[in-house]
């Protein structure tokens, strides 16, 4: 096992440049708050109806190539421990209340990043009897990352941009 670890080496890459897929919404939190989140941000991921494609790419942000944790960003198991919600999917009718409750459980100040075309506009599923709208229809959204699904690079850049950190390469 040790031999395998040494042979694999460190493969983490510098963060790539974001595609033209990230959209800033609403007013930013104050610079002071954002500065405090930077370097230590806890994220709660909420799937509000996705096809699980976005989840695969969110998982990939934690792989050794992208290593999201090097930015001090990590995923937590409870919204009460979180500073940010990362929300995917067209919000289904059956998830709308759960999403709202999860948002309310996150302590202030908090950020929301909507990940994927479905979260942004309903995507291929569109609006129907089974959906309750986009993520921004249910809770306030700070940044939208488009794509079906967005790449891990775009997701990481979207998270960093919501922190007011446009240059994330340090």
């Amino acid at each position: 096992m040790l031999r395998k670890i040494f042979r694999s080496g460190t493969i983490t890459e510098p963060l790539g440049v974001a595609g033209n897929n990230i959209e800033q919404l609403g007013a930013r939190l104050s610079a002071a708050v954002l500065r405090r989140f930077r370097g230590s941000l806890a994220i709660r991921a909420v799937d509000a109806g996705s096809c699980n494609g976005c989840e695969l790419e969110i998982h990939a942000t934690n792989n050794p190539y992208y290593d999201l944790e090097r930015f001090g960003i990590h995923f937590v198991a409870s919204p009460r421990h979180a500073d940010m919600l990362l929300v995917t999917g067209p919000v289904t009718r059956n998830m709308a209340v759960a999403l709202k409750m999860t948002y309310e459980a996150v302590p202030e100040p908090k950020l929301v990043v909507a990940v994927g075309d479905c979260a942004a506009c309903g995507g291929e599923f569109g609006c129907s009897y089974a959906t309750a709208g986009t993520v921004a229809d249910i809770i306030p959204v700070d940044v939208v990352v488009h794509g079906c699904p967005p790449t891990p690079t775009d997701i990481i850049n979207g998270i960093l941009i919501s922190l007011g950190d446009d240059i994330a390469h340090d």
């Binding site: 109806g49 699980n52 289904t92 089974a130």
Partner: peptide, 30 residues
């Protein structure tokens, strides 16, 4: 909880549009 109305959404679609929707039934088995 993630019921998105896929079967209803298929109705009225042409073959190509339906295939795009089917690609998103479960992203890991697209």
């Amino acid at each position: 909880y993630v019921h998105k109305g896929i079967e209803k959404g298929m109705e009225g679609r042409d073959a190509f549009s339906a295939t795009r929707l089917a690609a998103r039934v479960s992203g890991d088995a697209t």
